[in-house]
Structures are given as C-alpha cells and as structure tokens.
Design a protein around this nucleic acid. Structure first.
Lengths: 238, 238
DNA sequence: ACAATAGTGTCTGTAAGACAGTATTGG
DNA sequence: CCAATACTGTCTTACAGACACTATTGT
C-alpha cells in the first residue's frame, strides 16, 4: 500500500530532515587530504565544536536539486566551481541527528587547488585522510568519510580519477606519484605509462620543465566531466 | 554558513518530501524483468494510473532507516525477506514530484523467486526490462530504472551479481545463461567456468539432473550478503 | 661530463578466449 | 548406440609487470 494519505494534497505526516554533506578531497604536499569544518558552538547545536564534513540542510528555495545543493556547499567552502563531483550515497535513520529522523546525501569531490576557504565565519582545515579518520567527527561523518575513502581507493585501481586531483597541465610522472600515494604502493613506470596513454583520456598540452632533468610532456583531460574506466585493475590481489 | 537557524531546536524551515523506491529485478522465463506497480487513481494523486516503481514515503515512526524502509517496500510487494539489496543513489529536486520538493532514495534488489505480490490492493506486474523502459512511468522513474539497468549491466561484467537471480542450488550452465541474457552476448563455456570457480564464491551442493543429458553439479553462494568482484571485465570492448 | 629526470624496448609469465575433445546421463 | 548435456585439456594470444636501456635537460 502506498503510504500517501487519501487526500494527498494534505501531506500532513512528519517529514525527515534532509541534508547534504560533501567529502572534498585534494592534495596538500603530495598527501591525500580532506576538508573539515568546525561545528558552531551554540547551546542548542548538535556536536558543538566538533570537526565535521562541510554540509547542511537542503534549502528548498535556494537549491534546485541535491546536486545543486552539493555544488553550493563546495563553492561556499572552497570557491571551486566545476570540480569532479559524484554522489557517494545516502544515510538516513532515526538516530544519526539528535534533532530528529534525518537523511543525508553524501557527495564526493576531487579538486585540484586547495585554496582554503572563500567562506567567512567557519573554521576549515585540510586534514590528511587517515588522520581525519582518527578524529571524533560529528554525526555519522566517520562512516561517510570512510565510505568516501574506500570508494576513492577502490576506483583508483581501475579509473582515471586521480587526474582530477592535479592542476592542468600535468605530467605523467606527477600523475603516477598521485596514484602511488593513494594506492600506497609503487607502480611500474612503463606499465603505468602504457595504461594511461592507451586509455586515450589525455591530450598533450605542451612541455613542462622542472628544476632538474629532462622536461616532461604536459597533458590535459580530454573530458573533465567523467573519469575513464580501465579494463583491468592495476594488480589482482596476491 | 550552516543554514541551521540560531535556535536550532526550532527547525521551522520547510522540509522536502522523502521517499524510497526499489528497483526489483528477477528472472521470468530466462528474461530479466523488473517489478512495476500501478499508481492509485485518486483525484489528487500524482500520475494516477501510471506504472511506477514500488516505493513511497519514509515513515519516520515505522522505518528505523532508509534501508529498513526499502526492505519493507520489498517485503510488502514480494514477500521476499533477505535478498541482495544495494543502494542505487538518490534523486532530489524541486520538480520531480508535483506535491513539492522531494528526494527519493533508490535501491536495487535482486531476487530469485518472482512470487507475485503478497500485497493486497496494488496491481503489480513483472515486465521485461527493455519493455519497462519503453513505458511512460510516473515521476522520474524512467531515470531511476535506467540507472538501475546500467548499474546491473555494468556490474555483471566483473561481479557475481547474476547469481542472486537464481534459486539455490543452481548449476554453472544455468548461471552462464543468465550472464548471457543480461550481457546480451554469448560467453565461452570454458573461460566462464574457470572464472567462476577460480573466484571461489561458490560451494558445491549436490548434483542436479535435467530432463536429458548429464546431470550438473549444484552450487550455493558462499556469502549471500555481498557480490564477488572479478579482477577483470569479461571482455575489454573491441 | 655528470646528475637527474623523462621516456622506451624487450622479455617473460599469466590468464583469458577459442575450440576440440572427453564424460555421464536417459532413451 | 545415439542424442543431449556437462565438463576438461590444450593451444594461442594479448597484455601487464619487470627491468634495463636510451633521451634530454641544467650545471
């Protein structure tokens, strides 16, 4: 049976709270980091002063959609407008928010420039992923963050996702370093290059010199909207 | 800035509608089918009489969580209690429901027994996937269904998901047929069997005879909670 | 010339696909 | 013995990983 009442225009039953949270990843000093914000200290605030993921209630008058709401949160905290943004999932139950039954929609974003905070008022910090997981976060944000990291680590095995963490143009050695950082293991240079170039998601963009050594070919993404899937994982587990 | 008001215990702002929809897949005559329900005909009902995915409002007093709500919908429509159930994603915006800003949480379920409807009142039907996509469905259910089919087709390339569509115990030839149906192309028998047995997610369960020919070894899933990932896709696109 | 970094060539092992073969049942 | 289905063995090929090699820059 549909739970809609007979006179459906009434819709008088109790509605859950609806929020959006964004797990924003970026690189600081070749480390995978996530953006955290401090909860306000107010008397009636839940988890006052705790670290949390950026997010908040959906505003039915300002936000045309959940995605638009996530983009707004991201813009408010980082100033970044068009990043890689993907839905992570939703978590909803009666207990995750002391203010009542609530459902949150988590997104995860990859951005290149960790330009810290265009936002006024809120305290924000870039924190290394594993360190962030060890903090006591507000709500069930530990779960959300864990899911985001798992998803990212998982997808890195067979997608071009890490490329969204680099400012363009970037070089293949740079990209390989990011893969190695996220995966936590070294990769063979030759195999890595073959895979990246065969996947045909990069376009050449000039030459980039470093302090020392031979300059490298620069690349941009052919399509900044979506990641490329590789036909195999980097290495089947042993 | 968090949109929470200063005195947060008030929370007087307008809340979106929150629903759950479930895309329930099963096999009827070796065809991949999805369960549709007819929307009620009432005067004030949205999309009266249209076909739709089973779903409805979250009931904050009956449903402990979104997942529990999805399980309830599934149970009400099919009587199935412990299927494969995975979150597909959420869709929320101001226009998808004429009754107001609404967010739905879509789940997708794979069940073995298409026992039609333990539910009273509602008209339900198992419809072949591609045919269901051609119907004019209520709300944005065309989008949800499309996403579910894409997800299933995609995952079939590298997971054991189709095994959840078969009643246990099942045989490898049966399983292969399901893979072929969902993928829409034939698979090599030898390669298929090697892959399935190497993945080590099956346990032997007796022998199953057919009308004719040699009986086949029966198998059960080692773990009915989650699917197994294969290290490669079935065949890199050509 | 040398250090440092970028990029390539070549070998090898692994595993998937192709396909023909063998095995086991009922009539 | 034959049809029908289940299962296996062998060959080939593609490709990822290993690793040594060459290339190009600054000092």
């Amino acid at each position: 049976m549909s739970p809609a009442p007979v006179v459906s225009s009434a819709l008088t039953f109790e509605r859950p709270l609806v929020t959006v949270d964004v797990v924003i990843f970026s690189l600081v000093d070749e480390q995978l980091c996530v953006l955290l914000v401090r909860r306000p200290e107010g008397e009636h605030e839940p988890f006052p002063g705790r670290w949390a993921l950026p997010g908040g209630f959906v505003d039915v008058h300002r936000d045309a959609s959940l995605l638009a709401c996530a983009e707004r949160k991201l813009r408010e905290k980082t100033g970044v407008v068009a990043p890689y943004l993907e839905q992570l999932g939703s978590w909803g139950d009666a207990r995750r928010d002391p203010r009542g039954w609530s459902a949150t929609h988590a997104y995860f974003a990859l951005i290149a420039q960790p330009a810290i905070s265009a936002d006024s008022g809120t305290v924000t910090e870039w924190v290394a992923c594993d360190q962030a997981l060890r903090r006591r976060l507000a709500f069930d944000h530990h779960t959300l963050l864990g899911a985001a990291i798992d998803r990212l680590r998982g997808k890195v095995e067979y997608t071009s996702l890490p490329a969204f963490l680099l400012p363009e143009p970037f070089t293949l050695p740079q990209l390989q370093r990011i893969y190695e950082v996220v995966l936590g293991r070294p990769l063979d240079k030759s195999a890595f290059r073959k895979r990246m170039l065969d996947a045909d998601f990069l376009v050449e963009a000039g030459t980039l010199a470093r302090e020392q050594g031979r300059p490298a070919v620069g690349y941009r993404l052919r399509d900044r909207e979506q990641a490329t899937l590789f036909p195999r994982t980097f290495k089947p587990a042993e």
